[in-house]
Simulated assay, not measured.
Amino acid sequence: MSQLSACSVYVFDAYGTLFDVHAAVRKHEQSLGPNAALLSEIWRNKQLEYSWVRSLMGKYRDFWTLTEEALDYAFAKVPDADMSKRTDLLDAYFALEAYPEVRSVLERLKAQGNELAILSNGSPDMLKAAVEGNGLTDLLDHVLSVDELRTYKTAEAVYELVGTVFRAFPEAVSFQSSNRWDIAGATAYGFRTVWINRTGQPDEYGDLSPAAQLKDLEGLLLL
């Protein structure tokens, strides 16, 4: 029997897992200049760094604010990028595009009788815009944001939100994320984890290994 076969609740990280965090910059890359990809990488890395640092300090700022601040830092690091595109980039990020396979995979998991949710660092308004913009509202039982806790992953309290809402033991939850650090946190909590390693990153956190590693969400249907 598959290690994931007993799971009846499927929980997904949002950014990088369901929604393409680099889609905003790609949409405007022609006008941003030759270092658009670098801008996007710095933006994403700083966004995450700010969430970890804020959690450690106990000085919460919502994820949208961190997203804005991270973009400003990225523009400072890539001065040849056209800063007049700041508003356009933020508008595009607020309602990011989903990866191509997302809706079909969620539809099939739902048809099998599973409960589905998002558990994300994203602020409620950001998540609402992305979910509605990609037509996923009808497939999700819950969209859970860290905002109510005023801290970020990988705090244990964040993962506890799932059990509280679904009244499920951790081992009944399959947790999917493209972020290896998120997978480590969810594994430590007790979820059965699936690392969606879209960009072929090397493994880390060897003591907190996922139950499976996939290149995209399609592989979930084969587990």
Rank of each mutant, 00 (worst) to 15 (best):
L96N: 02
G135Y: 10
W43C: 07
K110D: 09
G163Q: 02
E132P: 01
E156A: 14
L222H: 13
Y15T: 05
F19D: 00
M1A: 13
R86W: 08
E107I: 08
N114P: 08
E68R: 14
Y10I: 13
A24K: 04
P170A: 02
Y99T: 02
A24F: 12
L4G: 04
S8N: 14
F169H: 14
F12G: 00
S55Y: 11
A212T: 05
T199L: 12
L221V: 11
L96C: 11
L221E: 08
I118S: 03
D207N: 11
G113N: 06
L109S: 02
W43M: 04
V158L: 02
K110V: 11
S145V: 06
T187Q: 01
L217D: 03
T187S: 08
Y50V: 06
V53Y: 10
R44M: 05
G16L: 07
D88R: 07
N179A: 05
L71I: 14
L139H: 07
H142P: 00
F175W: 02
D88F: 09
S2K: 12
V158H: 03
G135T: 09
D88V: 06
I42Q: 03
S2V: 13
G133L: 04
Y152V: 05
V25D: 01
R150A: 12
L222W: 15
T17F: 12
Y205F: 15
Y50Q: 01
P100W: 08
M83L: 08
Q213P: 00
M57F: 15
A129F: 14
E41V: 10
I196Y: 01
A81I: 08
F191V: 06
D203A: 13
A24M: 09
D91L: 15
D182V: 06
Y159E: 00
L32S: 05
G219E: 05
K110M: 10
A98R: 01
G219V: 08
L56N: 06
G219K: 06
W195E: 00
T65M: 05
S84C: 03
L217R: 02
E107H: 03
K27C: 14
F166R: 01
E97W: 14
A111L: 13
T193S: 08
L221M: 08
D216C: 05
Q112D: 13
A81G: 02
S120P: 09
V162L: 04
L89A: 04
A76M: 13
E115A: 15
K110E: 07
L119W: 09
R108L: 13
R192I: 04
L127D: 03
P202M: 04
L109H: 10
L18Q: 04
L161Q: 12
R44L: 07
S55H: 09
F63D: 00
G133K: 04
P170K: 02
G133A: 03
G135E: 09
M57G: 07
D13W: 12
T193Q: 05
V9N: 00
T154A: 07
S55G: 12
E115D: 15
